[in-house]
């Protein structure tokens, strides 16, 4: 696991994901943005790639404020640990994923389900919000070349580290990957820049 992040130099970490049904070699790259200090985790597994980009709360506020969500709902989602995420089928076969199968594990080893887009939309529907985009779709059945992006939300204290465990199915076989030691974006960029 990385203990130090070198500015602007992608760090390549190879680790074996022993939690998988079959031993899965995953390549995780962490990139630090020179200007903002924000981190991006990229993982390439068998037929599946995922990228998670830290987003600061003000960015989340700006996005959902622009789409007309009420202020209290904007604040609610901005209070989550939000990542821009990109999922890609890198295989020549059918690939599927279900966010409801994904988990994040806190520092005490307790696992929590990742909140799905469907769960967000259900909560929004109850308060009259019809906007239904920007969040990562809760599931995907991807053909060759298909990819998708959207926000992923994690509910943890902003300063707490966590591991993300994600799954996908390729040619009928379920796979599992893990990104360790992830962290939320800081509350604002000034905090991030002064702690570099």
């Amino acid at each position: 696991m990385p203990t130090k992040i070198v500015n602007s130099q992608p760090i390549k970490i190879i680790f074996l994901c022993l939690l998988c049904a079959q031993i899965q070699a995953a390549e995780v790259t962490i990139h630090k943005n020179n200007e903002s200090g924000l981190l991006t985790w990229s993982s390439k597994d068998d037929g599946f790639s995922i990228e998670l980009i830290q987003l600061i709360p003000d960015f989340v506020r700006a996005v959902y404020g622009k789409h007309g969500l009420p202020a209290d709902e904007v604040e609610r989602i901005a209070g989550y640990c939000v990542f821009g995420s990109i999922i890609q089928n890198t295989s020549r076969q059918q690939m599927s994923y279900r966010v409801s199968d994904w988990r994040y594990v806190d520092k005490n080893g307790k696992a929590y389900p990742v909140k799905t887009k469907a769960q967000w939309l259900e909560e929004w529907r109850k308060v009259g919000i019809t906007f239904a985009w920007t969040l990562l779709p809760e599931s995907g059945d991807f053909g060759i070349g298909d990819w998708q992006q959207g926000f992923t939300t994690i509910q943890l204290d902003r300063n707490e580290k966590f591991d993300l465990i994600y799954t996908w199915t390729l040619d009928g076989i379920k796979h599992q990957g893990k990104i360790e030691n992830m962290s939320c974006a800081p509350a604002d960029l000034s905090t991030n820049l002064t702690t570099q």
Binding site: H31, N34, E35, L38, I53, D58, F59, A62
Partner: peptide
């Protein structure tokens, strides 16, 4: 923020 994140998106290549 759009400026900051556009710059970040440009730096991090999209698929």
């Amino acid at each position: 923020f759009l400026l900051i994140f556009s710059a970040q998106a440009a730096e991090r290549q999209q698929p």
